[in-house]
């Protein structure tokens, strides 16, 4: 049953609730229930953090390697280059997220000013 499987107004909302809300709030509620009972430092928690982090990192890579919309009109090397440049700037600035984001956007926008992308659609 995919997101657009049923042609009714309520199905997408039910889909979001089950696939999105139940699946996130369950982990939060589990956290309240466990609160204080489980050590953050335990191996189980480290493993959980590793799996979740690797998964989110895969999502990030996907957004850069095969992006949606107008960003897809830019070369892969420019996207990877601006992300890498932003990350280096972030580290150099003492892990300031804002610096990393701005540096990345400066590289990307600078490239698009030099080599304008075609208007999509």
């Amino acid at each position: 049953m995919s997101f657009d499987a049923l042609d009714t107004w309520w199905w997408p909302y039910l889909f979001i609730l089950i696939a999105g809300a139940v699946t996130t709030d369950s982990w939060r509620f589990l956290g309240v229930w466990l609160g204080g009972k489980v050590s953050e430092e335990s191996d189980a928690m480290v493993f959980v953090r590793c799996v979740a982090t690797a998964l989110v990192a895969a999502v990030i890579a996907g957004l850069i390697v095969s992006p949606a919309g107008a960003l897809a009109a830019t070369p892969l090397a420019v996207r990877i280059g601006s992300a890498a440049g932003g990350f280096v700037a972030y580290l150099a600035a003492g892990k300031r997220v804002l610096v990393g984001v701005v540096a990345c956007e400066v590289i990307l926008v600078g490239w698009m000013l030099l080599f304008p992308i075609e208007s999509a659609a």
């Binding site: 997101f3 889909f15 089950i18 696939a19 999105g20 139940v22 699946t23 996130t24 369950s26 982990w27 939060r28 589990l30 956290g31 309240v32 466990l34 609160g35 204080g36 489980v38 953050e40 928690m45 959980v48 953090r49 799996v51 979740a52 982090t53 998964l55 989110v56 999502v59």
Partner: peptide
């Protein structure tokens, strides 16, 4: 979809625990 979201959200548990 639910499984992928759940797997990506496990990190919420240790955050709430803290």
């Amino acid at each position: 979809a639910g499984f992928a979201v759940a797997l990506s959200s496990i990190r919420l548990t240790p955050m709430v625990v803290a």
